[in-house]
Write a protein that binds this DNA or RNA. Structure first.
Lengths: 239, 239
DNA sequence: AAGAATAGTGAATCTACAC
DNA sequence: CGTGTAGATTCACTATTCT
């Protein structure tokens, strides 16, 4: 079982992955949805948009969160198109998104040639209250398949909603880090012994989850800092 | 506090409602998403698509579930446009949708001039497992506001996810009936003493919920059969 | 048990610019 | 030169969960 992190731009690296490699694509792109004015979106760093308090100073920033909705749609379509090529027939694709970008992301998923299969809400127990309104309590995972979904030898039945808190304290390495428990549940959809392809590896949580679930893993990460963090965590998970 | 059911086509009746009447629009349109082919959508009745087993024979059918996605978007936009006119500044709009129509419905909500505020997943505890995939466990409620949302004198904090099973057995009057408990939670967003406008009343569950939450109610229902059922339930809820 | 954090938001204040 | 508007900046704020 092979596990690796490749440092580089997602589109550029994806084009070097041989066709039919992946059994599951799991993508957690920058949502590009924070900020209330176009200027705020363009100029504010991801740190300022999403984090308040101490974490703003302790965690490294990440780039690529400044696209407007049209170019976000185009860009994520190109990414998902390359991912389709890199995945085999029957593979699944899981894309994280927030409520604002959900429609654009579902368009991109289908434009890239994936068959849209459903939405899996990710429920986060820690979240801000909204005065005189409904809490923004969930992010969403869009599920697509490359043709007919893979039929598992041993049938599996997966949840319709996943729940889990973001890591906190010293376990938190990335501003938008996803909990490993949540990723372990999602990764079940990958055929046994298959390979998980992760074009936005970040701190590598999906790699840790893939290793724990006995799947191969290819992660792509743009920033050198996070590529290092991810390699470190991947190694630790193997021991 | 006034409660009434008007029998007629939603668009036609909405145009007779005075501007600024409603404090909350709660719309549960036919989803028009069942069936995998255009032919299946056109020819199957709602009963066949959504119900299996006994209920198929016992519950009355409902029309209007045969639009394709483009005309669905256009039609629901026109409905929501009339609803915006019929609602006052600060009013909210809650639209039920399933995962397939969520992007089209969010387009329509915004095209009609509502400000999109979020997604509230409705989690149904009773649902079918999916072999080799994720459960289809949720429907979704899109939340929009007419301008800035109403500021309640007594601040309210509403949940980010609502839960409740569809009524079963003799309590079930309509194929796509929503639980009164879920609607009671949602109706909190309506200003106190305000009026709930429901362009697709069906068996009138939203009216029952509005009455229990001390809000006024105007329901519109196309079929004579369900308009009668709704009036009956509304009367019973008042006693 | 106390403290800190939350893929934020709305209102108020301030600045720049056109008329 | 005063006025009005649009855009940018700042600040206050909320309740549950987790350390």
């Amino acid at each position: 079982m092979h596990h690796q992190i490749i440092q580089g731009d997602a589109l550029a690296v994806l084009s070097t992955i041989p066709a039919g490699t992946a059994g599951l694509v799991i993508a957690d792109p920058p949502y590009c949805s924070g900020g209330r004015t176009p200027t705020e979106r363009r100029t504010q760093s991801a740190r300022c948009k999403y984090v308040s308090g101490d974490a703003r100073h302790k965690l490294a920033d990440f780039p690529g969160d400044t696209r407007d909705q049209r170019s976000y749609t185009l860009w994520i379509t190109m990414i998902l198109l390359e991912c389709l090529r890199a995945s085999h027939d029957g593979a699944s694709c899981l894309v994280f998104t927030d409520w604002r970008q959900l429609p654009a992301t579902s368009d991109a998923l289908q434009a890239a040639g994936w068959t849209w299969r459903g939405i899996i809400p990710w429920r986060k127990p820690i979240n801000r209250p909204t005065r005189d309104g409904f809490r923004r309590e969930c992010e969403y995972v869009l599920w697509g398949s490359h043709g007919q979904p893979h039929r598992h030898a041993q049938p599996i039945y997966l949840p319709g909603v996943v729940e889990g808190s973001q890591p906190r304290g010293h376990q938190r390495q990335h501003i938008t880090q996803k909990p490993v428990d949540v990723l372990r549940q999602l990764i079940q959809i990958c055929p046994e012994g298959g390979t998980v392809l992760d074009p936005f590896a970040g701190s590598g949580s999906a790699g840790v989850a893939a290793r724990l679930e006995a799947r191969g893993y290819i992660g792509i990460e743009l920033t050198e800092h996070y590529a290092d963090v991810a390699r470190q965590r991947l190694t630790e998970a193997g021991t």
